[in-house]
C-alpha cells in the first residue's frame, strides 16, 4: 500500500538508506505505470542508482515513466525572480550570480523556500502522477520543510509571503502531500523517527505517510525450531564443545531482541503505517531495483 498523495517527501537520519529507499519507491511506482518525478536537492546522489551523471535541474528520463531531477536554490531563485520581474533579460542585467548567491546565503530559510517553490510549481501541472522528494538527512530535512513557516512568520506581507502561503497550503493538505520516514530498528534512528513524526504534526503540519523500517534481518533462529532453543541450551550448557556456539547464539539472540524491542516501539507509534524492507546484499547498481521488488509485497 502506498498513499494516494501525489507529493511525497522522504525523511530520515543519515545512514539508514533514505536515498536508496527513495530511488526504489520511484522505480516501483514507475513500474506501476505512474509518471514519476524523483527529485533530490543540491546533490547528485541518484546518479549512481540510475547510471546517469550528471543529473540536471530540468530532469532526465532514466527509465520508462521515471524522470530524475537535481534541483538547487540558485536556479530555483532565478526561475522565481524571472517570473516576478517578467523578464529574464532584466533579471540578468540587474543581478549577476554573486549578488543572488549572497542573498540566498544570508537569509534564513530562503534556500529551502526556493527549492520547495520549484517542487510546488511542479505539482501545479498534470505532467506527473507522483513526485518523490529525497530531503537532506534530518534536522536539515525538517528545517527544510519549516522554511515556508520561517519566511511567512518573519515577514507577514509581500510576494515571498504569498509564495510561502501557497506552498504551505499544499504541504498541509493530506490529500496532496505526505511524509515518508525511513528508519532502522535501532535505538537512535527509532528515537529520531519519533521526533520527526512529532515535528511533522506540530511544527510542519504535514500528514505522515508510511514509516519504512529498512534492513530487517531474517530471524536468527527460524520460528519453526525456535521453541527448541531453551531445552537445547540447557542440555549442552556444560558441554565444552558446544559452549562457544551457545555463547555466539546467545549474543546474536540478544542483539535480535534489542531490534525486536525497537520494532515494537515503531509498531506502537505508527500501527499499520509501518512497513518493512529486508536486508539486501550490498550493491550500488542492483540495490534500488531489488528493493523496488521488495516493495511490491506492500500492496
Amino acid at each position: 500500500m502506498f498513499p494516494d498523495a501525489r507529493l511525497i517527501f522522504i525523511l530520515g537520519k543519515g545512514g539508514v538508506g533514505k536515498t536508496v529507499v527513495a530511488a526504489a519507491a520511484a522505480l516501483w511506482r514507475a513500474r506501476c505505470a505512474e509518471e514519476v518525478l524523483l527529485v533530490e536537492i543540491e546533490t547528485q546522489d541518484f546518479g549512481v542508482y540510475f547510471h546517469q551523471t550528471p543529473l540536471s535541474y530540468e530532469g532526465i528520463a532514466v527509465a520508462p515513466h521515471l524522470t530524475v531531477a537535481s534541483i538547487n536554490a540558485h536556479d530555483a531563485f532565478t526561475e522565481y525572480a524571472t517570473g516576478r520581474l517578467g523578464s529574464h533579460a532584466l533579471y540578468r542585467t540587474l543581478f549577476d550570480n554573486r549578488f543572488v548567491h549572497y542573498f540566498l546565503d544570508a537569509t534564513p530559510g530562503i534556500n529551502a523556500l526556493m527549492c520547495l517553490g520549484k517542487i510546488w510549481s511542479m505539482t501545479q501541472t498534470s505532467r506527473w502522477d507522483r513526485i518523490l522528494v529525497d530531503l537532506p538527512a534530518t534536522g536539515h530535512g525538517l528545517g527544510f520543510l519549516r522554511a515556508p513557516w520561517v519566511v511567512t512568520d518573519a515577514v507577514p506581507r509581500g510576494p515571498l509571503y504569498e509564495h510561502g502561503m501557497a506552498i504551505r497550503s499544499t504541504l498541509h493538505d493530506r490529500a496532496q502531500t505526505r511524509a515518508l520516514i525511513v528508519t532502522l530498528c535501532e535505538e537512535l534512528p527509532v528515537r529520531e523517527t519519533l521526533d520527526i513524526a512529532q515535528a511533522l504534526r506540530t511544527s510542519v503540519q504535514m500528514a505522515l505517510g508510511p514509516v519504512v523500517a529498512n534492513r530487517r534481518r531474517p530471524p536468527v533462529i527460524p520460528a519453526a525450531v525456535h521453541n527448541e532453543w531453551g531445552t537445547f541450551r540447557q542440555a549442552h550448557a556444560t558441554d565444552p564443545e558446544w559452549r562457544p556456539y551457545l555463547d555466539a547464539a546467545t549474543f546474536a539472540l540478544r542483539h535480535e531482541a534489542r531490534q525486536h524491542q525497537q520494532e515494537q516501539t515503531l509498531a506502537a507509534a505508527f500501527g499499520d503505517q509501518l512497513r518493512f524492507l529486508p536486508e539486501l546484499p550490498p550493491s550500488s547498481t542492483g540495490l534500488a531495483g531489488a528493493m523496488a521488488q521488495a516493495m511490491e509485497a506492500w500492496q
Binding site: 543581478f95 518573519a154 515577514v155 507577514p156 506581507r157 509571503y161
Partner: peptide, 18 residues
Amino acid sequence: TLLKFFGKITGVDLLREI
C-alpha cells in the same frame, strides 16, 4: 534603485528585516 528592484522579487518587508 537596485534594492527597489530586488524588493519587487522578495518583498520590501523582508529586505527591511534583513
